[in-house]
Amino acid sequence: MAAAKKSSKSNVSAEELMSHYREMLMIRRFEEKAGQLYGMGLIGGFCHLYIGQEAVVVGLEYAAKEGDQRVTSYRDHGHMLACGMDPKGVMAELTGREGGYSKGKGGSMHMFSAEKRFYGGHGIVGAQVPIGAGLAFANKYRGTDDVSFAYFGDGAANQGQVYETFNMASLWKLPCIFVIENNQYAMGTSLQRGSSTPELYTRGEAFGIPGEAVDGMDVLAVKEAGERALAHCRAGEGPYILEMKTYRYRGHSMSDPAKYRTREEVQKIKSEKDPIDHVRDLLVTGKHATEDELKAIDKEVKKIVSEAADFATESPEPALDELYTDIYA
């Protein structure tokens, strides 16, 4: 993570730090609970947890404004919580219940919220990238100043459609931020084994798209980079690439034993780079919050997640006639 930019950490208010802490903790606790429910057989299929990467979406959502859009891959729970979707609706979708965002018909990988301008939740690696540019296309077509965030991983960064999209997004100056969440592993293939050039933020150079590497474990650095990218897009300068150097603590999905990396490697990141510990340290050393205040947040978050889990297990399965609804508008 050598080249990644650090945050300047100047003029950050206590409120902001508290907000980051709370939002990141919400994602972490939510994902831990989802892992637990998966183990109990209440969540089925594929379930990709976001633990370790929380600073990326929390920092970028802090920089975004009302009206901006986001679209991502199947590792999408964190994005939904960070853009303000209800944890109950998200968890109930994971359990495949009527109360889920997609009435139980989408599942972990396929969730949407028209209200929060969250356009999925896509199960096909890389497919969300042109879709994100298409959202930006609509913004430009309609003359709004909204910007779309197209999130994808280091694995998807090798997909052909990503480069087709870079070309058109730059050619047409689409207000789109391509967020590469480089968590170092494309399922079991490390960046070094799958990418001829590991500096993913430079992948737009051939298309004239500026890019920067960001310390994706530092929420303040993420937010600042997001602000630069948003300003670039809103000024009509076209797309921008942010490579977030981050790390996922869990396997690729719940069924991944993660034999491709050592326990020591994961442990080292957890103890030295954890994004939530980092903000907690800032809050405590800067005397912005007391231990009691932080414990109160922990308690509040746990309660919300616990209620979400209760809702998700109590919500009924979808009615059988839902099988044939929502196929055609």
Binding site: I131, G134, A136, F137, S148, T165, M168
Partner: peptide, 21 residues
């Protein structure tokens, strides 16, 4: 007019349709 990139421009059009165009 698009470049000769069916996969990409189709995806962009789908995104525009998601946004209501």
């Amino acid at each position: 007019d698009t470049p000769i990139t069916e996969h990409g421009f189709t995806g962009i059009a789908v995104g525009a349709a998601f946004a209501g165009l």
